[in-house]
Design a binder for these strands. Structure first.
Lengths: 224, 224
DNA sequence: GCCGAACCGTAACGTACGGTACGGTTTGAT
DNA sequence: ATCAAACCGTACCGTACGTTACGGTTCGGC
């Protein structure tokens, strides 16, 4: 979950409201969508009437929770002028590692679960919100890096969106769906760093510029 | 969702029970986890008492539904003896296309949503069942192909599970998570075929054997 | 201090649903 | 035909929960 500056409401909440949203987050991690307004009110020492006054309804409270959580995740900017092959790879690996940390974090798992379980319902916008703060926010942040890399002749692609989607697939592979379905998948920091590096190397191999000397290509056997 | 021969119970149900499970499937597609036992009983012209007698409880009914749906999906075997570069690529692309058809199908989406929304609950095994019939079943079927390809020197990898997971990521990319969260993503037959071919070419490029002549490599610019 | 708004803890309302019970009908075996 | 089991449609039970209401307390502005 990543902050999305264009539509975030995080700046509009009081500290008290944010404390309530932290309670919702904790409860979502503990019991998922089984969280009741009564449970939130009790744990947050807040009346249900106030909850409804502040957030509208249950869906509104959940939406606010997603946005609040997303506002806590910040991604570093990058310097376009100093980008070279080494810093491109480092930057991409950093994005990849951050994404893996997000999707394997218990909060993101809980929020995605809730949003997915509401996605069939006609009135819920949770799925849109999670996508906007998740996959699409990541794309928005990474795209300038990809473009800068292409401008500098470090990578090459016909369609930047396709290139991003492929990198996305190389990063997450089967991790997110397994975690969402309850699989126990070890994603400690070492695994995350290694996976991010692997994904980045694979991505750069697939999208190496054609003019690049063939013998300087990474040895593909090291990619597994 | 793919049949898993070792634990399937599909063969144990009567035609009447299968008809009921089809009703559950249809309702899951229409209204997701909001499906009630009363709605199932009414649509299937079946009493709730009978539902409980046949399937135990609500979770049992949902589990049976996953297994029933999975039993309907069959994957063709492959001939190990005649495998060459062309047929390896064709075979992998076929697996990839099948997988994309499955995950973009409304039934699979509905079943994954239900399983994910239950995955936090302590007592539900839906997540395990869906994984077993999904990602893990695909792996089980594809692994012999990857191994045969490696034996024939058509591809090379240090760790077959890692190779499979990367291929999995290249196939699905961001498709499944977007569909689960309610995004409208065009996955018509043409898109599926193209995506499967792209993923296969990318996979084969990443895992080409080292001894293979460099100039015969696919042009990576065509991969986007 | 006064006063209205905001908020808390609790009660109440209306609806919903998983699961069980019941009377009657149907089915299958003898 | 008889009889027990299986099944259907409906009622019932107990619990649950989103949402609103209420009396009292706290807070903030004047």
């Amino acid at each position: 979950m990543i902050a999305d500056e264009t539509t975030d409401r995080a700046g509009e909440w009081t500290e008290r409201q944010k404390a309530v949203l932290d309670v919702v987050l904790a409860l979502l991690v503990e019991i998922g969508d089984a969280v009741t307004m009564t449970a939130v009110a009790r744990r947050a020492s807040c009346s249900k009437e106030t909850l409804y006054k502040w957030f509208g309804d249950r869906d509104g409270l959940l939406s606010a929770t997603v946005q609040w959580q997303a506002s806590k995740v910040h991604v570093a900017a990058f310097d376009r002028n100093t980008l070279d092959a080494g810093s491109l790879e480092a930057r991409l690996a950093e994005y990849a590692a951050n994404w893996l940390r997000v999707i394997s974090g218990e909060r993101s798992i809980a929020l995605n679960r809730v949003a997915i379980s509401h996605a069939g319902a006609a009135r819920s916008t949770l799925g849109d919100i999670v996508l906007r703060h998740g996959r699409f926010a990541l794309g928005k942040r990474m795209m300038p890096v990809l473009e800068a890399g292409a401008e500098k002749g470090l990578i090459a692609f016909d369609d930047r969106e396709e290139a991003f989607r492929t990198f996305f697939g190389l990063i997450a592979r089967d991790v997110q769906i397994r975690l969402l379905l309850g699989d126990t998948l070890a994603m400690d920091e070492a695994a995350i760093i290694a996976d991010a590096a692997r994904a980045t190397r694979q991505f750069l191999a697939l999208y190496a510029p054609e003019a690049r000397p063939v013998q300087t290509r990474p040895r593909l056997r090291t990619l597994t």
